[in-house]
């Protein structure tokens, strides 16, 4: 077969190729080891010596022409494909995304971790204590002896063995002071229990976070400063707080701490019962009897403590209007928090 015919045939095939894949196959069929153009070179060996030079030239010429045509065709096809993709208006970016399934954190965990982080940054350690306590730690050591009227302020779950579902996180004060050498600062979050009927704003099981600072000299002014930092951080804006007298047997003086209502800014609304203030936590200087029960000499060591209702804080933070959601396990609720 003459070089011209092979070349003409190759160019025709290249011109007819309509895809890059077809072009790749053609490249092998024409220029590969056993390709038609490569095969031509075998003719040189059998040609008379005088013809070998011109034949070789012709074959090289054909190879060059085919190679060039191949590249030209390839670039035409690539450009065509790109132009076609760019011109395509049918692609739909409004289809929903396809993501790996994501879970959710419980809102109490979210707020609790945030509070822990705030306090860790201020040099507090984070502790965790038992939910079933004994009378001594939950009451007696906290200056609430048997027959103290304050025992009626908290509807207590007693176990048949005479133990207590802790009514507050305050037993941790005793356990912390007994196990850690002063001075120290600590917070301890956890579940607490009150034997009372459930409704939209009452739960028998809820969460608190207790804070405790023990040092040689602590003051109400220190307490106020720490509370303000905590509440401003957790609410992510400057908050205004106020202390007023509050009675808890394990602190003296004892306070209720109110936060200026974040909904109305203090003007009065439904959330703050038109008072402008929302009761946020109880706190005070730790009572000398409690220090003594915890093995510290009140002449030598002072402490302040506070206990904040985590569940309440979570409800305020996320605008949850029914406390029963918190322990209800409804995925439609849980999946709102990531």
């Amino acid at each position: 077969m003459s070089v011209e015919i092979v070349q003409a045939d190759a160019l025709a095939q290249l011109a007819a190729a309509t895809s890059e894949a077809a072009l790749r196959e053609l490249e092998v069929a024409l220029l590969g080891k056993k390709g038609a153009i490569t095969e031509l070179t075998k003719m040189i060996a059998t040609a008379p010596p005088a013809e070998r030079g011109p034949l070789g030239k012709a074959i090289n010429g054909a190879k060059a022409a085919v190679t060039q045509a191949l590249e030209a065709r390839r670039s035409a096809l690539v450009e065509g494909a790109i132009a076609a993709e760019l011109a395509d208006r049918r692609f739909d970016v409004t289809l929903p995304g396809r993501s790996p399934s994501t879970g959710s954190y419980h809102p109490v965990s979210l707020v609790q971790e945030r509070l822990e982080d705030i306090f860790v940054a201020m040099g507090f350690r984070v502790l965790d204590f038992y939910e079933v306590e004994d009378d001594f730690h939950n009451f007696e050591a906290l200056n609430i002896p048997k027959n103290h009227p304050a025992r009626d302020m908290q509807d207590t779950f007693w176990t048949t063995d005479g133990l207590v579902m802790r009514t507050h996180t305050s037993p941790g004060q005793i356990r912390a002071m007994r196990s850690i050498a002063p001075p120290f600062r600590a917070v301890f979050p956890g579940k607490v229990f009150r034997n009372e009927a459930i409704d939209a704003s009452h739960e028998h099981t809820f969460h608190q976070l207790e804070g405790l600072m023990v040092d040689r000299e602590v003051s109400v002014a220190n307490l106020i400063s720490t509370l303000r930092i905590m509440l401003s951080q957790v609410m992510e804006r400057e908050v205004t707080i106020r202390l007023r007298p509050g009675y808890f047997p394990f602190v003296e003086p004892g306070f209720e701490c109110d936060m200026q209502c974040l909904i109305c800014g203090g003007g009065g609304c439904r959330v703050c019962k038109h008072s402008g203030w929302v009761e946020t936590l109880g706190c005070g200087l730790v009572h000398p009897n409690v220090l003594r029960h915890a093995g510290l000499n009140p002449e030598e060591w002072q402490a302040w403590a506070f206990g904040i209702g985590l569940s309440r804080l979570v409800m305020m933070r996320y605008g949850i209007d029914d406390i029963r959601h918190v322990m209800g396990g409804d995925l439609r609720f849980l999946q709102q928090f990531v």
Binding site: E116, V120, G123, V126, D215, S219, V220, A221, N222, I224
Partner: peptide
């Protein structure tokens, strides 16, 4: 109590601690 100014406690710097549990 509104008369009491907030005063940050003066304490020695300590290592931040988030316990293992």
């Amino acid at each position: 109590y509104a008369e009491i100014p907030p005063v940050a406690p003066l304490v020695a710097v300590s290592a931040p601690e988030l316990p293992k549990d």
